[in-house]
Structures are given as structure tokens and as C-alpha cells.
Simulated assay, not measured.
Amino acid sequence: MTKVLIYGGKTGWIGGLMHELCKEKGLDVVLGEARLENRETLAKELDEVKPTHVLMAAGITGRPNIDWCEDNKPATIRTNVIGTLNVADLTNERGIHCTIYATGCIFKYDEAHPLGSGIGFKEDSFPNFAESFYSETKGYMEQMLKCYEHCLILRVRMPISDDLFHRNFVTKIVKYERVVNIPNSMTVLHEMLPASLAMAQKGLTGVYNFTNPGVISHNEVLDLYKKYIDPTYTYKNFTVEEQAKVIKAGRSNNELDTTKLMADMPEGVVINDIKTACDLCFQRMKVNLEKMGWLPDNMPEEFKRN
């Protein structure tokens, strides 16, 4: 019987969503209490809970964005490096399958993977983006995590949910006055999180590009927001060079190859291409927001552009 222990489920976004999903599936699920940097406490919890699967969704991305990590490097290392390695190492010692929700923001378009070429980075591609401390540590981490044969490492990118939660990629870019317009691989959580659970239960391991197939641009995402959520919404574009003047850390833009993911996807799991998945996501978002009475003039202040 599957027994799931989730780290990052109490205060984390993806961890919380995975907790709800596991409950919906009728699984025996426990939320981790241990501080991940405390190896002894973590080991004790694993021995007491005795899970068959650990979902590692704890991590620091910074508030309101990864620029926070530039000024809080020790705290970032404590969770994203020490904590993650503790979970990987201790579950390895106990023979527990471990799924790690990692990031695909460790690449940038280059000569071998040009923008608009359709040539995506593969699972064995070496990270080429370290222009933010967050991505730099994640790039180091992936190389170390590959040593653990029991780990399923999922490269999530620009996650999108069916609401306006503050961590949602849509919510972030909607609040900006200006955005860059670059096609990217992205992860629609409504489709991909159930897939991650199915992959864990199947016992898959190794690195996977965990995004919907294909790419979608910032403008295309905002146009869907305008179409389904707020017809009065407007936005402006600016260049990557102009963006660099108002952020502390660089931002990753890339396309990930999903051939391996789709080939190994457990039977019955449906993953749409990113443009279809985003359109369906905004349709669900409209229904969800209408139920909450948020469309479009009376949204809470924290979801409005400053």
C-alpha cells in the first residue's frame, strides 16, 4: 500500500496541492514536521512514519520572487541544498522512493538550442544558466541528486495553477507593468501534478523535464488572461536588457524537450501541449474566480497591479 510523506505540504504551494491530491486519491498521506536541515530529526521522522514514498516539495524561491535569494544566500542554501540532500540521502539509506520537485530554470537559450528552433534541452543537458543564486544552487543540486538512483527529479518551470495564487506564474506577470515576450516551457499544475504522483507510484527515477510539451510566450499567456479573466487588462513589453535594469538576478528562458517524459508517462495520464493546457487552465480559472466573486473589478488588492 502506498504511504506518502510530504515535505513542503504545510506551508508550500506544490506540497499543499499534492497533499490535497493524495487525499482525493484515498492515499495514506502524512505532512512532514521535521526541519530538513536537521538530519537527526529528519531521520527519526522517516523511521516513525515509514513511508513508501516521499514527495520533496519544500524549498525557497523567495518572496515576491527569486531576487530575495540574492540577499539571503545562507537561508537559501540551508533549505535548497542542505535540506534537499538530507532528504535524498536519508531516503536512499532506507530504500524509500523520493520524488523531488526541482526546477528547469537552469538553462538559457544558446547556440545549440536557439530561441524558436524547437530544439529543447534534454535530461542529460548540463546546466548553462547561473545568473541568479537560486538557479545556481539548483544547477549544483541536480548534479548531486543524479547520484541517488532512487530519486525522481522533476524539472518544473514557470508553474501555472487554476487560480490567482501569488506563486502562480500568471499572477506574477499580470502584476507587472511591462513583461518580456519570450516563448518558454511551462508546467500547468492541474495536469502535471497528478502525473507526478502516477510516476512516483510507478517507481520511475532519474531526471525528467516536467513541463507540458511545446512553448508558450508571455504575451500568449497574458492574452488568455485578457480573453477569459479581464477584458480590460492591458500590458506592455520590454526587452531583456531593459528588464535587467529593474531586477537583481537574471531570469531563465528556455525550451525543455519532453520526449522522455511523454514516452514514460504511466498509462491513462493525459498531458496536453502547453498552449492547449493553458487555454483549458484559464477556462477553469474563470469558473473558479466567478465562484469566489472575484471577476474582475473586485479582486482582493494583493491580486491587483500596484
Rank of each mutant, 00 (worst) to 15 (best):
V4K: 01
V4I: 15
G9F: 05
G15V: 11
G16D: 04
G16E: 01
V29F: 11
V30Q: 09
E33T: 14
E37C: 10
K44R: 15
T52A: 06
V54N: 13
A58V: 08
A58C: 03
G62S: 08
N65A: 09
K73C: 00
A75E: 15
T76Q: 12
T91P: 02
I96M: 09
I96H: 06
C98K: 07
C105R: 12
I106C: 11
K108C: 07
K108E: 13
L115K: 12
G118S: 14
I119F: 01
G120L: 10
F121V: 03
F126R: 04
E136S: 14
T137W: 00
M144F: 11
Y148N: 03
H150F: 06
L154H: 13
P159G: 13
I160F: 15
H166Q: 10
V170D: 04
V174R: 11
Y176P: 00
V180S: 09
L189I: 11
L189W: 05
M192N: 07
L193H: 09
Y208D: 09
Y208F: 15
Y208P: 07
N209Q: 09
N212V: 10
I216K: 05
L224F: 04
K226D: 00
K227F: 02
Y228A: 06
Y228R: 02
I229C: 10
D230M: 04
Y233M: 07
Y235G: 00
V246M: 02
K248Q: 13
N254V: 15
T258W: 03
L261A: 04
D264Q: 15
G268E: 05
V270D: 07
N272F: 05
F282Q: 06
F282P: 01
M285A: 03
M285Q: 00
K286H: 11
K291V: 01
K291P: 01
W294Q: 14
D297A: 06
N298A: 03
M299D: 02
E301D: 15
F303V: 10
